[in-house]
Amino acid sequence: MTPSTTFLSCDWGTTAFRLRLVERETLKILAEESSKEGNAATAEAWQQAGQPAKQRVAFYLAVVRQHIQQLEAAVGTALAGVPVVISGMASSTIGMAELPYKPLPFAVDGSDLLTKTIAPTADFPHPVLLISGVQSDDDVMRGEEVQLVGCGFENTPEEQLFLHPGTHAKHVTVQNGQATALKTYMTGEFFALLSTKSILAASVEEGGKLAEGRHQQWFAQGVLESQQANLLHNAFLVRTNDLFRKNSKPENYFYLSGLLIGGECHELLGHLPAGIVLAGEPALVELYGAALRVLGIAHKCPVTTKTAQEVTLNGQWVVLKQHLGTLPTM
């Protein structure tokens, strides 16, 4: 295990931090650490510390260093010199160093993404590659652009779709080796608000899997009904389903999920891509895959599924390889 055979993958979101020691040749994870030290919490800690602005990067890297030390203990060897590639919100206003967004289009091989290199120091003996996000005229993303690169889209004139489910789901059009259009859907955030903060909270209950009981039936019903009526009306049916004992609270949970995911995917019916790469956390990929089948979309264009971990590691490594010759050293 040497700096030339491994890299450190840092996926640093708003609310979560994940660091992995990765073997370059196989992308095998050799050790992993995670915490709730997302960029929002780190930014708050930075403000409370009252340090000068020039110390901001070092403050954030100290968080990374603590986790690297835990990885070193796990693998039983020092990792000095191993490069760190960071994607996600670390390049945002709440991150270690704000970088401008790369305007669309961008190459799906990651060759023209905006990046920043940070030289190693005595306190942080690792070269750092920080990857910025992407913007259209009216939309943005940070982190998902690396996952798109990790999907390995072919250079073809046919329109492909990168679909990343999550708190803020992303739909990115890919054509001729370029990501050309971007739409964000607040599906996950709306679901969280409706299921925990609204009047519907008392009518839903998280638990169980899609394949269990009548969950799939109620999820499919939600997807289909999302195509037939306004969401603002359909959402109240979650309340009356419970009130009239039409279904259980866990079934209602999947019904509400179907309503929102079905609503998000509705536009695809009018503009089908030649293929869809559905990449994200397994539980969400399962739900979105089911919705695409219920709507008949999966029967009209191929849907390829990938995990968020797979495309994140692959995308980070693709971008890092392009910068290995120019990374600063001590």
Results as ranks from 00 to 15, higher is better:
Ala122Thr: 13
Glu72Pro: 06
Lys116Asp: 00
Pro100Glu: 04
Ala90Asn: 07
Val128Gln: 01
Tyr185Lys: 02
Thr187Gly: 05
Asp123Val: 06
Tyr60Leu: 02
Pro105Arg: 06
Leu130Arg: 06
Ala122Cys: 02
Pro120Asp: 12
Thr187Ile: 03
Gln147Trp: 11
Ala122Phe: 01
Gly152Phe: 07
His164Ala: 15
Gly81Thr: 05
Pro127Thr: 03
Asn155Ala: 14
Thr117Val: 11
Ala78Phe: 00
Met89Gly: 07
Glu154Phe: 09
Gln66Asp: 10
Ile118Thr: 02
Phe124Gln: 04
Gln70Leu: 14
Phe190Leu: 15
Thr167Tyr: 12
Ala62Asn: 10
Lys170Leu: 12
Thr121Gly: 07
Ile118Lys: 01
Ala74Ser: 14
Glu98Pro: 04
Val75Gly: 06
Pro120Ala: 11
Lys183Phe: 05
Arg65Cys: 00
Gly133Met: 12
Arg65Met: 09
Arg142His: 09
Val75His: 08
Met186Cys: 08
Asp138Gln: 13
Lys170Tyr: 10
Ser87Cys: 15
Ser91Leu: 05
Val82His: 03
Tyr60Asn: 03
Ala62Ile: 01
His168Arg: 05
Pro105Glu: 07
Gln70Lys: 15
Pro105His: 07
Gln69Leu: 12
Thr93Pro: 00
Leu148Lys: 04
Ala78Gly: 09
Phe124Ser: 04
Thr173His: 02
Ala73Thr: 13
Val172Gly: 00
Ser132Pro: 06
Thr115Val: 15
Val174Cys: 12
Phe59Val: 03
Arg56His: 03
Ser91Pro: 05
Leu161His: 08
Gln70Arg: 15
Gly177Cys: 06
Val174Trp: 08
Gly166Val: 10
Ser87Arg: 07
Val172Trp: 00
Ile86Gln: 08
Gly133Ala: 13
Leu71Asp: 04
Val64Met: 09
Ser91Asp: 08
Gly88Arg: 05
Gly177Asn: 04
Thr187Trp: 03
Thr187His: 02
Lys183Asn: 12
Gln175Thr: 15
Pro157His: 12
Asn155Leu: 04
Asp138Leu: 11
Glu72Trp: 06
Ala62Gln: 12
Ser92Val: 10
Leu61Ser: 03
Pro125Glu: 03
Gly81Arg: 07
Ser92Pro: 08
Val149Arg: 06
Leu130Asp: 01
Val172His: 03
Val174Leu: 09
Glu98Cys: 06
Ala119Met: 10
Pro157Thr: 11
Thr115Glu: 01
